[in-house]
Design a protein around this nucleic acid. Structure first.
Lengths: 136, 136
DNA sequence: GTAGCTGCAAACTCTTTGCAACTCT
DNA sequence: AGAGTTGCAAAGAGTTTGCAGCTAC
């Protein structure tokens, strides 16, 4: 698959220094960074970058589907790159996000929507849990 | 089941005129009103009520689990009373919210969390769809 | 009487935007 | 050259909060 920069330029975006930095940060992220996270990491590479640019760039990338915006129950957005289809389990004790996939679940969702008379366009499933404590 | 007012007083809340109005509005709501919605309906009964009170009251009710707060992908909260356990399908064309339950889904969620080593504390499932168009 | 509640306005958080300067192509 | 992009600061939306006065108990 072509890299992020290439996909941006072929979508007609100009490749500025700031965008290169933000794309680098995103390309290296293996977590689900908030705008603030992306901003902080980007500033490490180019301290002149502004948070408005980070917001604008992430919005663009979201529109181009190069990035997926999530809103967990935290009051702000987090972004994810290269998101193959999956869902999230949020660890309530650490805030860590665990990804999972489940075939059965996919089928069930489509079926539920269909039974209600709808075509499924989008969906959101998040689990919130705590690590199972083993008995001593 | 005892009514909302009763449940509030027995939780130690003072029963003020404003709260009575807000509880009446909530008791009569069979939809998923936003804070603004509750505020507007409450003003119809007592025009002196302030939106700060609505926010404060809804927060209290949420803490007492007398109400469930939802954040669909709209940028604000909606509330729901007497929520027996169910999920939502949001009609992307009309904004209408359809409720559904599904036993199979419940079991599957618990199983997924367990397989990942977690106890499921909370979860969120929303489907977003459009009405299936029948062929002519 | 007093702890709790209220309205008001100011403050806060996250996000978007107008504008003048700048920069890819 | 010119459209697109940027930083800055101001503005927006939704929500919370400090405070002085009021009210249920």
């Amino acid at each position: 698959m072509p890299d992020l920069e290439e996909r941006c330029t072929s979508a007609g975006l100009k490749m500025t220094g700031q965008r290169r930095v933000i794309l680098k940060v995103l390309g290296e992220a293996d977590d689900h960074p908030s705008v603030e996270d992306v901003y902080d990491r980007a500033k490490g590479l180019d301290s002149s970058i502004s948070i408005a640019t980070v917001y604008r760039t992430l919005s663009l990338l979201d529109e181009l589907d190069l990035v997926v915006r999530h809103e967990f129950q935290e009051g702000y957005s987090r972004y994810e790159v290269n998101a193959d289809h999956h869902h999230h389990l949020v660890d309530l004790e650490t805030g860590k996000v665990i990804e999972f996939q489940n075939e059965e679940l996919e089928k069930l969702k489509v079926k539920i929507a269909k039974d209600l008379g709808y075509d499924l366009i989008d969906h959101r499933l998040e689990l919130y849990g705590k690590k199972t404590k083993k008995k001593k």
